[in-house]
Computed example of a mutant assay.
Amino acid sequence: MALVFAAEGLEGGEKLLLLAYTNYTDPHGYCWPSERRLADDCGTSVSTVARQKRNLKAKGLLKSVRRINPKTGEPISNLSRVNLPLLASMRRPARPYDDNLLQQISFDEDPSEHTDSGPDLLKCHSDGYPLSDRQVPPSKMTGTPCQSDSQSLTDPPREPVEIRKDGRSPSTSGSRRERSSGSAASGKTKPPSLTREQRRQVDVLFQALPKELADLVPANPPVNLKTAALEALAAGRPEERTVQQLVEFRMLPKWNKHYASQDAAGPIRKPVGVLLALLERDAECGDARCDERTNVDTGQSCISCGERAVDKRAERVQEAAPEPTAIPRPKQSAKPVMVPAQPAGGPGGEWAPPNDEYRAIRAMTAGRRRHR
C-alpha cells in the first residue's frame, strides 16, 4: 500500500482501486478479490471498478486470469496479480513539504523544547518509520486464503499448535460429526454480502414496522432475515412491493390472524421465525398484485381470489349432493302361448296327423323351455 501512495502518474480512481487490491496481495502480488468486494471496499459501483481495472491493465499494473469452479463449472472470482516492481519504479521523487516542523505548533513556554529527547512523535511525515524513536510493530501484507473482510496490516499472533505423529493437528472443539458436516466439508461458501442499497432498503423496512413487529427485530438481524426482507420487497419484479404495501397488506394481516391473540399468553420464543413467516408471500391465486386476498394497488378485495372462492364453493356443493340412484325396471314376463290340443282324430274318430300350424307353435314353445 505504501508503494501505491508513493506512485505518480495514477488518477484518483486508479489509485483507490490499487489500494484495495494491495490490501489482499501476498508478497508476490497475487490476490483474488471479487469485483463486488472491491466495489464495497472502494465505495463505488461494480461498473466503476471494471472501468478502472481496464485502465490499470492498459498501464501494465494488473493482470487477471479467469477461474472456474471444478465442481460446479460456475465462474468464480479472477486470480489477479499486481505488478509490484513496476509500481515501485513509479515512485515520485522526493519533494520538500512544509509539514515537518514541530516548532510551528509549540507554545511560548514549553519545557520539552529545552530537552534533548523531545516529545514521543514522529519527526516527519516521510514513508519510513525508522526516523522516529518509537517502536512500530512490523506490517505484513499477506492475505488469508478466504480473503476475509477482517484483513488487517498486522497478522495477529498465533498460539503454538501441537502436531501429532501422523502430521495432523488435534481438533479444539466440536465432534467428528460436526466436523464432517461443517461448511468446509460440505463445500458451502460464505453468502455474498449485501450492497449499500440493499442494506438501506432493509433498514427502511425495519424502521417502518409498527411497535409490535419492531420489537421482534433483533439488534443485529441475521442474514437470512435480511435476505427474506429483500425477497419480500422483490425490487424490479412483478411482485414488487413498497414498504407500506408490504407492512399493511401482508405482515399486519398475518400478525392479526395468527399471532396477535396468542401474544397475550406470553412472549414469542422465536421472533426471527415469526418475522420470516410474516414476510413470506402466500400465493393463493395467480395475481402478482395480491396479498392476503387484497389487491395492494387498490386496497380492494382481489377479484381472482373471489372467483376462486366461488369455484371452490361450487365444487363442495357438487361433492355433497347425493348421486341419483337408478330405478329398477320390472321384468317383462313372457306371454303364455296357447298351444292347441292335438287333434284326437278325424271326423270318424280316427287319428289325424298334425297340421303345419300345430308344428310351428310346438317348436316355438320348445325353444323357450330350453333357454330358461
Score class of each variant (00 low, 15 high):
Trp32Ser: 11
Trp32Met: 06
Ser34Ile: 05
Glu35Leu: 10
Arg36Thr: 12
Leu38Ser: 03
Leu38Val: 07
Ala39Ser: 13
Gly43Tyr: 09
Thr44Arg: 13
Val46Asp: 09
Thr48Val: 09
Thr48Cys: 03
Thr48Ser: 07
Val49Leu: 07
Ala50Thr: 12
Ala50Trp: 10
Ala50Gly: 06
Arg51Met: 05
Arg51Phe: 05
Gln52Tyr: 14
Lys53Phe: 08
Arg54His: 05
Lys57Trp: 01
Ala58Pro: 00
Ala58Trp: 04
Lys59Pro: 04
Gly60Val: 01
Gly60Tyr: 00
Leu61Tyr: 01
Lys63Cys: 07
Val65His: 10
Arg66Trp: 06
Ile68Met: 13
Asn69Cys: 15
Asn69His: 15
Asn69Leu: 15
Asn69Thr: 14
Pro70Thr: 11
Lys71Met: 06
Lys71Gln: 09
Thr72Met: 14
Glu74Gly: 05
Pro75Ser: 13
Ile76Ala: 14
Asn78Gly: 02
Leu79His: 13
Ser80Glu: 11
Val82Trp: 00
Asn83Leu: 01
Leu84Thr: 05
Leu84Val: 10
Pro85Ile: 07
Ser89Gln: 14
Met90Arg: 10
Pro93Trp: 01
Ala94Asn: 05
Ala94Cys: 03
Arg95Gln: 07
Tyr97Ile: 01
Asp99Leu: 06
Leu101Phe: 12
Leu102Asp: 06
Leu102Pro: 06
Gln103Asn: 11
Gln103Gly: 12
Gln104His: 07
Ile105Gln: 09
Ile105Pro: 00
